Simulated scan of single mutants.
Amino acid sequence: MALHPEIAKVVASLPAPPPGPLDPEAMRAGEEAMVPPLEERLPLHSVEDTTAQTPAGDVPVRIYTPVDAEAYGLLVYFHGGAFFLGSLDTHDHVARSLAKETGLKVVSVGYRRAPEAAFPAGLEDCSGVVRWAAENGQQLEWDDTTLAIAGDSSGGTFVAAVAALAHDEGFDRITHQVLFYPSLDLDFDVDRYASLRENAVGYGLETAGLKPFNAFYLSSGADPADPLVSPIKRADLTGLPPALIVTAEHDPLRDEGELYGQRLKEAGVDATVSRYAGAGHGFVQHFSWIAAYHRVFDETAAFLRGES
């Protein structure tokens, strides 16, 4: 189907990018300026900022408790932003919706970003917080059952990489992985996937923008041939946690996400691929106020409950 009319309106209103190289500080400031005030955010039982002590160092985290209960399943969330954008604040609304709709306690990770932090700093932070959550289950009131990881876009890259690292290191506590329109192949040859050409222009994220947006991460030492950078390049996908992979019809990254889901299934992993019609990249972050796309949180909740 065509791009959803509400999304199309926004895409049509986007200004042309400024000339010259990308300015991370200016782009971050622009994102932060769009964050709504606290009183306009979805209310939950509690939202707490704290620090996770990990082997990679102290990592800021924000803990979302949906309701008052004796114990909770846990979901560790990695925000998107091409490895250099995004923050606990810009994705606060996503974490709140995940907590509300899943009923899980959500731990959102303020990992280190490129270009200031070289690869694999951000990945180490995400992996370390997952271990920290498991090791501090009593403090987090964990019910010792669900320990899911979820992320959007580059956060989805981290989800796949963290799941692979955990498997290789014998850490078997991760129960589910949820990837929203993930970036899984940082080799941006336009002939690798049909969606890179089909959705190249006019849908928000454009194929020509992939290289410059990810350049900060790649220039920091992230090698696209490394399966921890491009998880689709991992040869053996057996033994990974059950996966929900959400893709968007009009996303240049659509096909790599769907191929990854297919490869997981072929490796014997319980994997569900769910394509959202009329959507473009970033719809969970930017357009989940549209009912057709807010249901992604319901689908996530059903997956985590074992209903899909």
Rank of each mutant, 00 (worst) to 15 (best):
H4R: 12
H4A: 14
H4G: 00
K9V: 01
K9C: 00
K9G: 12
V10M: 06
V10W: 01
V11Y: 06
A12S: 14
A12V: 11
A12F: 06
S13I: 11
P15F: 11
A16C: 12
A16Y: 10
A16V: 15
P17M: 15
P19T: 09
G20N: 11
L22V: 01
L22K: 02
P24R: 00
E25L: 01
A26Q: 02
A26V: 08
M27W: 10
M27V: 04
R28S: 00
R28D: 08
R28V: 05
R28L: 06
R28N: 13
R28E: 11
R28K: 14
A29Q: 14
G30N: 05
E32K: 09
E32G: 03
A33H: 04
V35A: 03
P36F: 07
L38A: 15
E39P: 01
E39G: 06
E40T: 07
E40K: 15
R41Y: 04
R41P: 07
L42D: 03
L42P: 07
L42S: 10
L42I: 09
P43Y: 10
P43G: 07
L44W: 10
L44R: 07
L44A: 14
H45M: 04
S46N: 08
V47L: 08
V47C: 13
E48Y: 13
D49N: 15
T50A: 13
A52C: 11
Q53I: 08
Q53K: 15
T54H: 11
T54V: 12
G57I: 06
V59G: 09
V59Q: 04
V59M: 09
P60S: 13
P60E: 10
V61K: 04
V61M: 06
Y64M: 07
P66K: 03
P66W: 02
D68I: 00
A69L: 01
E70Y: 12
A71R: 12
A71Y: 00
A71S: 13
Y72P: 00
G73L: 12
G73V: 08
V76F: 02
Y77C: 06
F78V: 05
F78C: 04
H79W: 03
G80F: 01
G80H: 02
L85F: 12
L85W: 03
L85M: 08
G86P: 05
G86S: 10
G86A: 00
S87T: 11
S87H: 09
S87V: 11
L88K: 12
L88R: 08
T90H: 06
T90I: 11
T90N: 05
D92Q: 09
D92S: 12
D92M: 13
